[in-house]
Amino acid sequence: MKIAAITGISPNVIAELKKGKPRTLELQSAHNIITLTDVLPGDHVFMTHIDLDDVCSGDPGIIVEVLSITINMKRMVEYINPYYYEEKERMSARIQVKYVDNTIAKGVDGRYWAKPTVVDILPSAVFHAG
């Protein structure tokens, strides 16, 4: 199963998500924002603490469900003395996610600039009796 991958997430954030409550994350890494441009609410996403350059087959992560997503641009103007000012733009993505399951990456696609990162994951082997 291939799904979008968000990389470089703090292990503390992943541990907090595993408790089961929805959490909102603000992401500013360009590669993660590019990946999120193809994600809609209701989609599943692979999250791992491993950096994009190091993600490979066999790396652990979690699957989360995206509850909401917002990508926006912030403009800031900084004045220094009356003759100098600097304008900055910062793009960020806010996503609210909920933990679904643990998983392992089987393969990684899209480590190229301006391409979403996609990971092939192992399907869950959890069965519920009922």
Rank of each mutant, 00 (worst) to 15 (best):
M47I: 12
I95E: 03
S57M: 14
M91C: 14
V119K: 02
V77C: 08
L40R: 15
L17P: 07
D59W: 01
E87S: 14
F127R: 05
A114Y: 09
G20R: 08
Y99V: 12
D51G: 03
S57D: 14
D101S: 13
A15G: 13
R111W: 10
G107Y: 13
L25P: 12
R75V: 02
P123G: 03
S29Q: 15
I33Y: 06
H128M: 12
G107W: 07
M1C: 04
N12L: 02
V97S: 09
G58K: 09
H49R: 06
P82M: 07
P41Y: 00
V55F: 04
H44N: 15
T48C: 06
E87F: 05
G20H: 09
R90S: 11
V45F: 01
V97C: 06
L52N: 00
G130Y: 14
D43Y: 08
I3G: 00
D120Y: 10
Y83P: 04
A129R: 13
S29G: 08
P11G: 02
E89H: 12
V119Q: 09
S124L: 06
K18P: 04
V77K: 11
P11T: 11
A125V: 04
I34E: 02
R94G: 00
F127K: 11
I33V: 13
V55N: 08
D53Y: 12
G58W: 09
G8C: 01
S92T: 11
Q28G: 00
W113R: 13
M73A: 06
T117C: 15
Q96K: 15
N81R: 14
M76Y: 07
S92F: 14
N32H: 12
L27P: 06
L27I: 15
I50T: 13
D54V: 04
V119L: 01
A125L: 10
T48I: 03
I80K: 05
V13K: 10
P22F: 11
E87H: 03
A114P: 05
H128R: 14
A93C: 15
M76C: 05
S68H: 04
Y112G: 11
D59R: 05
P116C: 01
D101F: 09
V77F: 05
I104F: 05
S92Y: 10
I95W: 09
G110H: 09
P82V: 06
L122I: 01
D54L: 13
Y99C: 11
G110A: 08
I50N: 06
K106S: 07
K18L: 11
I9F: 06
W113C: 09
R90D: 01
H31T: 06
E65K: 15
D53T: 12
L27Y: 02
S92W: 04
G20Q: 06
D101K: 00
